[in-house]
């Protein structure tokens, strides 16, 4: 699993990346009440707004951590956004994206680096 400075995690399986927000981010946001997911087949450049996660008093953009095409979204979040709080780094995943350029993962942090990053 790789991490971004925007507190997203990316897990690569072949050329498909699963994306979600980190435990740290979920804690910071508080009780999550709604997740707006992209449409399947939507195309994004790295850094585009791909989804929105909302708590009662805040809304945060989720950026596409890599460029590519959405292949699948976590529809369970529609009825159970609280899953992002309960299990952010597994069941609370947001979407899967088919990478157009795997080298975009190169600059991302590993777990130790991310830990150091959030303690900074």
């Amino acid at each position: 699993m790789k991490y971004t400075e925007d507190h997203e995690w990316v897990r690569l399986d072949g050329d498909i990346a699963t994306v979600g927000i980190t435990t740290h981010a979920a804690q910071q946001l508080g009780d999550i009440v709604f997740v707006e997911l992209p449409e399947v087949d939507a195309e994004f450049e790295k850094g585009d707004d791909a989804a929105v996660v909302e708590s009662v008093k805040a809304a945060s953009e989720i950026y596409a951590p890599v460029s590519g095409t959405i292949t699948k979204i976590n529809e369970d979040l529609e009825d159970a956004p609280e899953m992002v709080n309960a299990d952010p780094q597994a069941a609370g995943w947001f979407f899967q994206i088919k990478l157009s350029d795997t080298s975009e993962l190169d600059g991302m942090m590993d777990e130790a680096a991310y830990k150091a990053f959030i303690e900074d």
Binding site: V33, F34, E54, S55, V56, K57, A58, A59
Partner: peptide, 9 residues
């Protein structure tokens, strides 16, 4: 649903 509104978004 105030996250749609200007004071947050």
């Amino acid at each position: 649903l105030s996250t749609r509104e200007q004071h947050i978004r």
